[in-house]
């Protein structure tokens, strides 16, 4: 039996407004072991909100509710904001969907990585510099010394994403939540970033929550997949069985993809059943 790192039970993310409450995440339950857990679904299905809610990073007026979000027996829902900050820095890291917003625009990239590193270790500045360059190399950044001197706006989206991944890996977290970490990257670079994360799961026993809208990528890369629709988990399956998924929503998404090996005149268009959004969330706890 795989050990459970994180146990999320009945998670809701609600946004109250003048027109009533909008539930962005509705009763989602899952566990995470030392595995690569994929979350897929269309934009707006609640993937990012699920990831952010684990770290209690939902901005007001949004509200997070859950029976528990248990990290190694500690219920994160019950922690003070101060204790939660320690969890965020050290134990669970998140790579945000838009990395540009997560980097400080007026600080060089080098200073930011060094600062992040020294927050978690007693390393000297020189050691931290060397470690930072090494981390940038680990995420396939070709000219790390130059990048250390650069500011975030000088970086392309793909570079920014790799820099964020490098920074997130420095504290050696138990869990990494990666929100569309490779969507802005070319396939070749995408492979490199995935293999870095893969290595961390295999070598360090890290748990990875990998959020993506790319079904093929998730089928390829992850161990287990949650499929989200309208804030709910509609189906859970082993990643290598994703192409045999049963739920009509998952099937619809798969069939809408063009395929090189199966030429077709027309692509299937997803027919949405109102039932999908009212049905109960499927549990992905093991």
């Amino acid at each position: 039996m795989m050990s459970t790192l994180l146990d999320v039970e009945n998670l809701w993310v609600r946004f109250p407004s003048r027109n009533g409450v909008f539930d962005a995440v509705r009763g989602v339950s899952f566990t995470l072991g030392r595995e690569r857990l994929g979350i897929v679904g269309e934009s707006g299905s609640g993937k990012s909100m699920t990831g952010r809610a684990i770290l209690r990073l939902i901005r007001s007026p949004g509200i997070v509710e859950a029976d528990q979000i248990s990290l190694d027996g500690t219920d994160l829902m019950k922690l003070s904001e101060k204790d939660m900050r320690a969890v965020r820095g050290q134990r669970i890291s998140m790579v945000m969907q838009d990395p540009k917003f997560s980097l400080n625009p007026v600080m060089t990239i080098g200073d930011q990585i060094i600062e992040a590193y020294r927050l978690h270790s007693a390393a000297s500045k020189a050691q931290a510099y060397a470690k930072s360059v090494e981390m940038l190399e680990a995420v396939s950044i070709r000219n790390p010394e130059r990048v250390m001197r650069a500011y975030p706006h000088e970086m392309s989206g793909g570079m920014g994403q790799r820099i964020m991944i490098a920074m997130m890996l420095i504290p050696n977290p138990e869990i990494l939540i990666a929100d569309e970490p490779t969507s802005a990257l070319d396939v070749s670079v995408q492979r490199q970033v995935l293999s870095i994360m893969d290595k961390l799961v295999k070598d360090r026993g890290m748990g990875l929550i990998f959020i993506s809208h790319d079904l093929n990528l998730v089928a390829d890369f992850c161990d287990r997949v949650l499929i989200m629709y309208a804030g709910r988990i509609v189906e859970v399956c082993d990643a290598d069985k994703l192409h045999d998924a049963k739920h009509p929503y998952t099937r619809g998404l798969l069939n809408s993809l063009p395929r090189l090996d199966v030429p077709r005149d027309r692509l299937d268009v997803l027919e949405r059943d109102p039932e999908w959004s009212v049905a109960l969330s499927v549990s992905a706890r093991v």
């Binding site: 079904l215 998404l253 809408s256 993809l257 692509l267 268009v269």
Partner: peptide, 13 residues
């Protein structure tokens, strides 16, 4: 999204 992509690609075809 891929579901929307399918609609647009069908339209273009």
């Amino acid at each position: 999204d891929v579901s929307v992509q399918a609609e647009i690609l069908n339209l273009l075809a």
